Amino acid sequence: RTAFSSEQLARLKREFNENRYLTERRRQQLSSELGLNEAQIKIWFQNKRA
């Protein structure tokens, strides 16, 4: 289980509010910017949509 920092969570929530689905390219960008792997971001979005 991933423990996200408050900064990472704030960024993910802001991104989710703008778009509930990420393109592969956007997921790669977020992964690089947040220091998370793409799978972690993908799962976070899946869980948030559920």
Score class of each variant (00 low, 15 high):
1 R>P: 14
1 R>G: 14
1 R>C: 15
1 R>M: 14
2 T>F: 13
2 T>E: 13
3 A>W: 14
3 A>V: 12
4 F>I: 10
4 F>T: 03
5 S>G: 05
5 S>T: 14
5 S>Q: 04
6 S>W: 09
7 E>C: 08
7 E>V: 08
7 E>Y: 09
8 Q>M: 05
8 Q>V: 09
9 L>F: 04
9 L>E: 12
9 L>T: 06
11 R>V: 11
12 L>N: 00
12 L>Q: 00
12 L>W: 02
12 L>E: 00
13 K>L: 15
14 R>H: 11
14 R>I: 09
14 R>M: 12
15 E>Q: 03
15 E>H: 03
17 N>M: 11
17 N>G: 08
17 N>K: 14
18 E>N: 10
18 E>Q: 10
19 N>G: 05
19 N>F: 05
19 N>Y: 06
19 N>E: 04
20 R>V: 06
20 R>T: 06
20 R>P: 15
20 R>W: 08
20 R>Y: 06
20 R>H: 10
20 R>C: 10
20 R>Q: 13
21 Y>M: 07
21 Y>Q: 07
21 Y>K: 06
21 Y>T: 09
22 L>A: 03
22 L>Q: 02
22 L>I: 08
23 T>D: 11
23 T>L: 03
23 T>S: 13
23 T>I: 02
24 E>A: 14
24 E>G: 09
24 E>R: 15
24 E>C: 09
24 E>I: 12
24 E>P: 15
24 E>S: 14
25 R>Y: 11
25 R>A: 14
25 R>Q: 14
26 R>C: 04
26 R>Q: 10
26 R>V: 06
26 R>M: 08
27 R>G: 10
28 Q>K: 14
28 Q>W: 06
28 Q>Y: 08
28 Q>A: 10
29 Q>F: 07
29 Q>Y: 07
29 Q>V: 08
29 Q>M: 10
30 L>D: 00
30 L>Y: 01
30 L>H: 00
30 L>Q: 01
31 S>N: 02
32 S>P: 01
32 S>R: 14
33 E>T: 04
33 E>N: 03
33 E>K: 03
34 L>Y: 02
34 L>A: 01
34 L>S: 02
35 G>R: 05
35 G>W: 02
36 L>D: 00
36 L>P: 00
36 L>S: 02
37 N>D: 15
38 E>Y: 04
38 E>S: 07
38 E>Q: 06
39 A>K: 11
39 A>G: 09
39 A>P: 04
39 A>F: 12
39 A>R: 10
40 Q>R: 06
41 I>E: 01
42 K>M: 15
42 K>W: 14
43 I>W: 15
43 I>R: 13
44 W>A: 02
45 F>G: 00
45 F>H: 01
45 F>Y: 04
45 F>L: 02
46 Q>P: 03
47 N>I: 13
48 K>S: 10
48 K>T: 12
48 K>I: 07
48 K>R: 14
49 R>D: 06
49 R>Y: 07
49 R>W: 12
49 R>K: 06
50 A>M: 12
50 A>Q: 11
50 A>F: 09
